[in-house]
Simulated scan of single mutants.
Amino acid sequence: MPTSSDSRSGPEHPAQSGFHPAEWSSEFLGTFLVLLVGLSAVCFDLGSGSPLQPLPHSLRLLITGLVFAATGSVFALTPPGRRSGAHLNPVVTLAFWTQRKVHWHDLVGYVVAQFLGGLLGAWLVVLVWRGWAASVHDGATQPGQGVSAPEAVLIEAAMTALVVLTILVMTSHRRAARYTPLVLWLEISALVWGCAPLTGTSLNPARSLGPDVVGSMLGSYWVYVVGPCLGGAIAVGLFRLASPVEVLTTKLFHDVRYPSTMASRLPVRP
């Protein structure tokens, strides 16, 4: 078994079974906000009639990425985010589950909450932005021009592997763990900036499902399930090669003042 990467971490707080409405509601809220704010940024920055149209497209993509990624990172710092851990992505929860940090009750609860939050966020964006949303295909992620579906799968897998591996590495070091939201903000922003024209930079099946359902564009959705899940599996495999390093917390911003229903070697409130 892997051992802690920080000798000062305590005995493991075990993963808890049962119904956890506070944590699941937090994941629902966080994913809803990521879709609502992030897709609103897509509509405002890239949609028809955008006041930013005089700016270079690359700069508008960078602004969109900074806003999209910041929403999840800022949520991780809020009380709900500190409570649930702010996974906001089924692939992240699955990755922690493979590390034996998540009870299957929370695995199901988190994933369902994330998908429902993404659906509601996407629906509200279409309701609010209307024509602007339609001009960017409701924020749906689709393979770019000249990019085949298999190529999009590999690109999404590579990007997701980088993000998930970053999360696993950061949360396996006591001092680094609290900087996970900042690192992810910069990393995901860069990925959106550089790779959005290729795949839309989803990294997250819950992020892609909402716009695809709302806009009835499910034809390419499988790309954004297979790609991120493959990337998550690659990240987990690479992380295991780093034995004896062990994940210390499943929270992207660990706060000892909050309880945890997941396994943790960092202190949690009873």
Rank of each mutant, 00 (worst) to 15 (best):
L252N: 10
A134D: 15
T78R: 11
S7N: 13
G47E: 01
A95V: 02
Y221R: 11
R60N: 06
V112Q: 10
P244C: 07
G219L: 04
F75V: 05
W132D: 13
T199S: 12
M262L: 13
P244K: 07
G30K: 00
G237P: 02
V67K: 06
P143N: 09
Q142E: 15
H173L: 14
L230G: 10
T249K: 02
S220M: 12
P205L: 01
S73E: 01
W123C: 04
D212F: 00
L107T: 01
P14Q: 10
S189I: 02
I188G: 00
V67N: 08
L52Q: 04
W104M: 13
T261C: 12
D106C: 14
W132G: 09
V192L: 14
L107G: 02
L46A: 00
V102P: 00
G146I: 08
Q114Y: 02
L33P: 05
L62V: 11
A206D: 00
Q142T: 14
L29Y: 03
G232W: 03
P90H: 07
G231C: 03
L94Y: 11
E187K: 09
A15V: 06
L55R: 08
G215P: 10
S264W: 00
V213K: 10
L36T: 07
V67D: 01
V74L: 15
V42N: 10
V147H: 12
G118Y: 06
A158D: 09
G118A: 02
L154P: 06
F28D: 01
E151Y: 11
